[in-house]
Amino acid sequence: MQCDYFDAGACGSCTLMGVPYAAQLASTQRTAAAYLAEHVPHDRWLDPQPSREAGFRNKAKLVVGGRKGAPTLGILDPGGEGVELRHCGLYEAELHRAVLVLADLVASSGLTPYDVPTRQGELKHLLVTVSPDAQLMVRLVLRSPGQLSRVRELAGPLRQALPGLRVLSVNLQPEHKAVLEGSEELVLSEQDTLPMRVNDLVLHLGTRSFFQTNTAVAAALYAQAARWVDGVDGGQGPRVLWDLYCGVGGFALHCAAPGREVLGVEVSQDAVASARRSAEEQGLTDTHFHEGDATTMLGEAGAPDMVVVNPPRRGLGPRLAGRLEQSHVQHLVYSSCNARSLAGDLSRMPSWQVERARLFDMFPQTDHHEVAVLLRRR
């Protein structure tokens, strides 16, 4: 892949830009395998799951810079000035089109970009997500409600220019710090979730729901986890499965099966509501979702036959890893975006053995990675 922004030195986010994709994938595989060498024998690795090297991102996280009438959409330079990246080659085609439409409409809307050096202005970020069915979620992050009326006026032109627009919202982030969004969200559309079709399921993404930025590779990850789950116990699969850090229910819903009790646990109330909605639409009466702390479930509410975990980048940590080590759980699927923290957690669980491991190249052009492992009790 070639990128004009990278070549011009305007953006260095894609650290592997210009490296042939096959070499990128091989390098990422070697890196993950090196971190996990103590825990994953060479013959336990499956072939890595590749990605499209361009046009794969389903989400744009754009800093708004520039000035009123002439905004920039992209990132900030070291001095806090906006850097234009609206033609980033990583975006899915419909997402790219939406970004271009937003750039034009924001320019003519009267919205004032937030200027970091002077701490003046209102519009801080644009967060745009596209589904496989070309439906869109557009979120505008404002410093205050001061220009909310301008966003409301923008809604009509946005819907006309973007027929796939399903969710439109304003997030308020009043603090001057490097975070994308605040805690208050104002949904301006009739619908408040974006249906995200993944394999044969529809997941519902709320405005602040986490979802992988690469839909095709996420689909492969969920499908792999479901195959591993169904294959344990001689192909019988577990009778009771828990999905900890379940988010909007991607793993739990993919692993649901007749006669299997599935429980998803997530601290986010919005994500749990979305997951419940998806389960209801699928008619999954034995799949339930609970709002709570994943680190405290084991031991407090018994233990299932199998657990799926997809923790934040920091990993499970000593507390949950210790609970898994001491539990009666027999099988575990661990999906990790950080092989180093995964290795640390596996060191805390010496009674577990890795049966299979696979790299999922969720983030081409970078050395970031997603690794899934299947473990069983020794």
Score class of each variant (00 low, 15 high):
Glu53Ile: 09
Lys61Glu: 12
Ser27Pro: 02
Ile75Arg: 08
Arg67Met: 09
Leu136Ala: 13
Gly82Asn: 11
Arg30Gly: 03
Arg97Pro: 07
Ala26Glu: 13
Val83His: 01
Leu126Arg: 09
Leu105Lys: 08
Gly80Asp: 00
Leu62Phe: 02
His39Cys: 12
Leu46His: 12
Leu76Tyr: 14
Leu95Val: 04
Asp115Gly: 08
Tyr21Ser: 11
Gln49Pro: 09
Ala60Thr: 13
Tyr5Gln: 03
Arg67Trp: 00
Gly65Cys: 05
Arg86Cys: 07
Arg30Pro: 02
Gly12Cys: 12
Gly69Asp: 04
Ala23His: 07
Ile75Glu: 00
Ile75Lys: 04
Ala54Thr: 09
Leu123Met: 10
Leu111Glu: 05
Gly9Pro: 09
Val63Asp: 00
Tyr5Phe: 05
Ala32Pro: 10
Ser51Asn: 10
Gly65Gln: 04
Ala134Asp: 12
Ser27Gln: 13
Met137Val: 03
Asp77Gln: 00
Gly80Val: 08
Ser13Pro: 05
Thr28Leu: 13
Lys59Trp: 10
Gly82Phe: 03
Thr15Asn: 07
Leu62Gly: 10
Asp43Thr: 13
Ser109Arg: 06
Pro48Gln: 01
Ala134Arg: 15
Glu53His: 13
Leu136Asn: 11
Tyr5Trp: 07
Leu105Thr: 11
Arg57Lys: 07
Tyr35Trp: 15
Ala134Glu: 13
Pro117Cys: 14
Glu84Gly: 06
Gln135Cys: 12
Pro117Lys: 14
Ala37Phe: 14
Ser13Tyr: 02
Glu38Arg: 12
Ala60Cys: 06
Ser131Pro: 10
Lys124Arg: 15
Gly74Gln: 03
Tyr5Arg: 13
Leu73Pro: 02
Tyr21Arg: 08
Cys88Thr: 04
Ala134Lys: 14
Leu73Glu: 01
Ala22Met: 00
Ala70Thr: 13
Pro20Asp: 00
Gln24Asp: 06
Val40Arg: 11
Gly80Ala: 07
His42Asn: 13
Leu136Glu: 12
Ala26Cys: 11
Leu90Phe: 02
Ser13Thr: 05
Arg52Gln: 15
Gly9Arg: 07
Ser108Thr: 15
Lys59Met: 00
Ala70His: 13
Glu38Asn: 09
Val99Met: 09
Ala60Gly: 08
Leu127Gln: 02
Arg52Tyr: 08
Gly18Gln: 01
Trp45Glu: 03
Ser108Lys: 15
Ala33Pro: 03
Val101His: 01
Gly79His: 03
Pro20Thr: 06
Ser108Arg: 15
Leu95Thr: 06
Lys61Val: 12
Asp77Ser: 06
Gly18Cys: 03
Leu126Ile: 14
Arg119Lys: 13
Arg119Trp: 01
Glu84Asn: 05
Tyr91Thr: 03
His39Leu: 12
Met17Gly: 02
Ala103Ile: 04
Pro78Ser: 02
Glu84Tyr: 02
Thr15Lys: 11
Leu76Gly: 05
Tyr21Cys: 08
Ala54Phe: 07
Phe56Tyr: 15
Ser109Phe: 06
Tyr21Met: 02
Trp45Leu: 07
Ala98Val: 12
Met137Cys: 08
Asp4His: 10
Thr31Gly: 10
Ala32Gln: 09
Arg52Thr: 13
Val106Ser: 06
Gln24Pro: 06
Gly89Ser: 04
Pro48Ile: 01
